[in-house]
Design a protein around this nucleic acid. Structure first.
Lengths: 308, 308
DNA sequence: ATGAAAGCGCTAACAG
DNA sequence: CTGTTAGCGCTTTCAT
């Protein structure tokens, strides 16, 4: 309100900006406030496009709130992950743990060490963001059933993956409910090659549609199906790396359930910020989105009604 | 040497470890020493597997030296990149700039702001790590020429890409030297779809081999060639995302020039550390490695002798 | 309302 | 060689 302050402030700001842009010393500020304005994120594999997309979201949201993002790659190793948490905790205000390879018990104890938000994990006594793996899997099965497929195959991911466990469970119960046959193959290391291999195994079962653990595997499946002349090449249209993918053996060639990875990353940062402010934090579950790709181009549509 | 010290040290260490693991306060240390032990890395797109792999190397090497890696994504935007550099510079000891979208002049001035190492860029007055785009391109052309191909096509990447400019130049001069015809198509946004499109254009020129700007495009090329029945499906074997890729229309179906991305990331950290210690830094150029994939499996071989 | 001063926890320089 | 002390640059509290 006081105009004097305004003028003075303006003057100071001007001086500041003028005098080669003054930048406060972050270390000194951190010492005084106890806040680093850094947030950490630990993923099992930085090179996995799935996590890269999440990091992108985290970094973007963190930047908006004036923070910088510190990343680390645990290389799928629980010991490394533990060490990383310890190393990071002293340099950041909080950590976002993606698809943690730690046990539930270990995760429960983490609240003492530093502020933690888990992504792709539930019920560990920490704020969490999940991508509704179950819902996505359900949409996939219902979609295939609606297309008339009666025999499905699920090419499973790593048995240590929480997402995989969730999907398996859902796919099985959902298929049973719809009276659809479901065969489970795997576990596979989720690679292109595993998809190629899985495709042959799946075809041998006499199934008419395949659900793959993720897009990388689905890519392999599709490649193999095209090679064997089973899928229609013109329909092949893979653009993204979404979370759970479904390769159908006829048109449309590939359908995926896209999960909002960047959004999930942003949500995780929001939860972290809330927790740091001592606000109550509610867990977040991001909905998956069925994406049907056809020869006329990709379009996003609602999930087909469940054939209950 | 003095045993007394040993005992005392041991005792203290024990006390330390015992008393719930004492952790020095990083902020205080940073204030006192002026060292954050954080290193920054800025990339144009975090979701690009090429950069993800580099970050992985950077993070690994940084960790070995007791540092944490702060990442940021400039989203291909020079303005954002500039802002990011300013924001980061106060929180890290140095920054690794990957495939910077800034002009040479701007980069030259950066030495004043903070310690910087550039990756995928040369002659900007800063320590640099490059991946020998030229050498890789040369190997590619020589290999194709040795296989008897007389008409090549290069599907170019973004015109703002330094790597693309280097490769174009090399491919052209190398082809000329070997008496091989070379047609240039593009520039393309380096996507799968662009590869599909480029494949058709390339075939129309009557060329017998295609060099794509990168693996993502090559994937598209290959997919299209298989679909059109031009390439031999059984030979299709794409596993990685390497830097520059070459799709041959006959056996072997795909050959790539792999660049050591993680190694380059590690090298960049080494240069940064050296620079921080005031040591003289030499630029590093990482050699590309020709990888020939055949039906008998992938093998790494030396580049074929130049048919000079 | 504005200004002075006391730390934050560490390191490095110095005195004993 | 060990022990003490003066800051590092900011925030925050307390006088004025």
């Amino acid at each position: 309100m006081p105009e004097l302050v305004n003028r003075q402030t303006l003057k100071r700001v001007r001086e500041t900006a003028e005098r080669l842009g003054y930048q406060p010393n972050r270390a000194a500020r951190a010492l005084a406030t106890g806040r680093t304005e850094n947030i950490g994120i630990i993923v099992p594999d930085l090179a996995n496009p799935f996590f890269a997309e999440i990091i992108k979201g985290v970094q973007g949201r963190a930047r908006e709130s004036g923070s910088v993002t510190c990343v680390a790659d645990s290389e799928e190793d629980p010991d490394t992950e533990r060490a990383l948490i310890t190393e990071m905790s002293k340099r950041v205000d909080g950590i976002i743990l993606c698809s943690s390879r730690l046990t539930t018990n270990e995760l429960r104890g983490l609240g003492e060490v530093t502020q933690v938000v888990v992504l792709n994990r539930e019920n560990v006594g920490l704020p969490s963001v999940t991508m509704d793996a179950a819902g996505g899997a359900q949409q996939a099965v219902e979609h295939l059933a609606a297309l008339g497929h009666r025999r499905l195959v699920y090419l499973g991911g790593p048995s240590v993956s929480w997402s995989n466990r969730e999907r398996r469970r859902t796919i099985r119960s959902c298929a049973t409910r719809l009276g659809t046959e479901i065969a489970e193959l795997g576990p596979f290391v989720p690679s292109f090659e595993a998809g190629v291999q899985g495709a042959d195994l799946a075809v041998a079962t006499g199934a008419s549609a395949i659900i793959a653990f993720n897009d990388v595997m689905a890519l392999g499946v599709l490649s193999r199906l095209v090679t064997r002349g089973i899928a229609v090449p013109e329909e092949v249209n893979i653009v993204g790396f979404d979370d759970i993918a479904m390769a159908v053996m006829t048109t449309p060639a590939l359908t995926t359930v896209a999960v909002p990875k960047a959004e999930a990353g942003r949500a995780a940062v929001d939860l972290l910020i809330a927790a740091l402010l001592g606000q109550p934090v509610a867990n977040r579950k991001m909905a998956g989105q069925l994406i049907v790709r056809g020869s006329t181009g990709a379009y996003r549509g609602p999930a087909p009604a469940a054939a209950k």
